[in-house]
Design a protein around this nucleic acid. Structure first.
Lengths: 211, 211
DNA sequence: CGTTTCCTTGACCCTCTTCAACTTGAGTGG
DNA sequence: CCACTCAAGTTGAAGAGGGTCAAGGAAACG
């Protein structure tokens, strides 16, 4: 199936010399994926690291009955793909139209990568506190502040992912996420412009919520 | 306060040439702590790694109102103390009478430590799935299996920590942990000998619970 | 303009939490 | 050796937060 999104996307990228799996193009340095496409799967041979060039990536894991935990989101400029073993423990998927560049060899020094690995560990550990001990509002607050921080705008966020991904990241359901957004909006904690843009009107209150 | 536990403990260690903070002894290689003693605190200058020589260590973090998340347990032989920044993000405390040896310099190669850091990341990420998406029984099952694995006995566990630590590790309350143990015992999933010894009578069922 | 996906909202229910009392066990002192 | 004390664990009853199920609305896409 070649959707309009795909062909437009592929054409745009082709002009930039970007390889689209499923289209036939030149340079192979950046790989592009459409929304929902799998970058790697649990059980795949591991080894390669990637930088997100544009778009966003989710890392997740599944239980046998389909319950899903999103472990991390990676935005443009961020590196992902660390693995402890020789096979992938998680799935990586493009959230929207996304470009990803493999870091083969490049800076493959353990010394260079160590800080990144440690940061990944810290992220996961901090996330444990959020999921293990905080309420729905607190989880969303922490999530929004983290995103604002990484996007470089203290007061305005563009959510790159749908509600379901947020829910699965925070250990909630999509309904609870929606209701919590609604509650925070009616409390004046945030403003929503459409479904993907959030303004943090009372940043300090949000910060206090996560203490 | 010098309890009987402490003095007996210090004497025993003194004979081994082990330094007990608060007692005055010889060699300084292994540091010993009594139950509940702080090994390092959030905000401390980071840098050193430690091996657990005996006993057990918990790593945790607190919210402003006292809610606590235990991030990890470390048993004899395991290494802890990784930090992404220059100050500690977590607290480390001895769970029981515990000996810990600093790894200063020793094998401080980034290349050597990378696998350990990555394993720590994987542990945290796996734990995210447990806390984020599994029920009380499933969490306990996962916890017991993990411990059995690390203690090297597939079917018998000695819990080194009290119920409260287990609760704070799994994102539950102490009451729920207790009730869940009781339920698993009455289902024949496990046997309890006293409060600290667990026998996994139906290991396969436990494994299935965590899928 | 119709279809599909995503999001929101409502009503009900269930799991886990909260609060409280009781039991058990280990350490202390008479 | 036994009573006392205190911490740790268990158990019960009631309540809340979030999940589930279901329906309706909004936005993206063809």
């Amino acid at each position: 199936m070649q959707t309009a999104e795909f062909t437009a996307f592929a054409a745009r990228l082709g002009a930039l010399g970007i390889d689209v799996p499923g289209a036939s193009l030149r340079h192979a340095s950046v790989r592009a994926y459409t929304s929902g496409a799998e970058i790697y799967a649990q059980g795949d041979r591991a080894g390669e690291l990637y930088v997100v060039e544009f778009g966003a990536v989710r890392i997740h894991r599944l239980l046998a009955d389909g319950r899903r935990q999103v472990i991390a989101f990676h935005l443009a400029g961020e590196i992902f793909g660390f693995e402890a073993a020789s096979t992938r423990s998680f799935f990586a998927e493009a959230i929207s139209a996304t470009g990803v560049r493999p870091l083969s060899g490049l800076g493959a020094d353990a010394a260079d990568l160590m800080p990144l690995a440690l940061e990944g560990m810290l992220r996961a550990q901090t996330h444990l506190l959020v999921i293990g001990r905080q309420s729905a509002v607190e989880r969303i607050a922490a999530f929004l502040l983290d995103l604002a921080d990484r996007q470089g705008d203290e007061h305005r966020i563009e959510l790159p992912m749908p509600r379901l991904d947020i829910a699965d990241y925070l250990g909630l359901t999509i309904e609870t996420v929606s209701r919590t957004f609604a509650k925070m909006r009616s409390t004046g904690l945030i403003q929503l412009q459409g479904t993907r843009v959030v303004k943090l009107t009372k940043r300090d209150v949000l910060v206090d919520l996560c203490r």
